[in-house]
């Protein structure tokens, strides 16, 4: 199975780190992984996105153009990448910021109010972790949550205080999909 994902939002929503955590966790699971950002002027305020691939096979192109999953954290990202999903693909839509519904009926869409869930946990900045939890659950747990947390601890080794709240955010994202 090859998961080819696009994670997109505006700069500052943490889509890059969301992708890195997923990639890192995939590597810890022993899968082939790649992460590649779309960088440039977009880094500074516009839409930011990254491609993440987790696969049992060696990875060819790291740039995802026909995605099995898309996370859209804001409206421009939704508009840009909805069409990149292959039939049967999964769309995680941050319904806190996107008031539109997908018109595609050949994909599975999950509307996740990521900002609201994160705010209810005490910090809206954790919306990316809520979305990550939702994505992982929607994919049938492509990586174990414990692997994500292992990756989180490595990346944020200097900020131990944020580990527990972020784990809660991921679990809340998981739960939203299960409901």
């Amino acid at each position: 199975m090859t998961h080819e994902m696009i994670l997109a939002g505006f700069g500052g929503q943490g889509v890059m780190v969301m992708g890195q955590l997923l990639t890192y966790a995939g590597m810890l699971e022993g899968a082939h992984v790649s992460w590649i950002p779309s960088y440039g002027p977009e880094m500074r305020g516009g839409t930011a996105n990254c491609s993440v691939i987790i696969s049992q096979e060696p990875i060819g192109s790291p740039i995802v153009t026909e995605a099995t999953a898309v996370v859209a954290m804001n409206l421009p990202s939704f508009e840009k990448f909805e069409s990149s999903l292959s039939p049967g693909g999964i769309l995680i839509l941050n319904s806190s910021l996107i008031d539109r519904k997908s018109k595609r009926d050949d994909i599975k869409t999950y509307n996740v109010p990521a900002n609201e869930i994160a705010s209810s946990l005490g910090d809206a900045r954790m919306a990316n972790m809520v979305a990550l939890g939702a994505l992982n659950a929607a994919l049938g747990y492509v990586v174990d949550t414990s692997r994500i947390m292992e990756a989180f601890k490595k990346i944020f080794a200097k900020k131990p205080a944020i580990i527990a709240p972020n784990e809660l955010a991921i679990l809340a994202g998981n739960k939203h999909i299960a409901v």
Partner: peptide, 10 residues
């Protein structure tokens, strides 16, 4: 190239 420089892999 810029893609190889920026991408992450194991």
């Amino acid at each position: 190239d810029g893609a190889l420089g920026q991408m992450m892999e194991p």
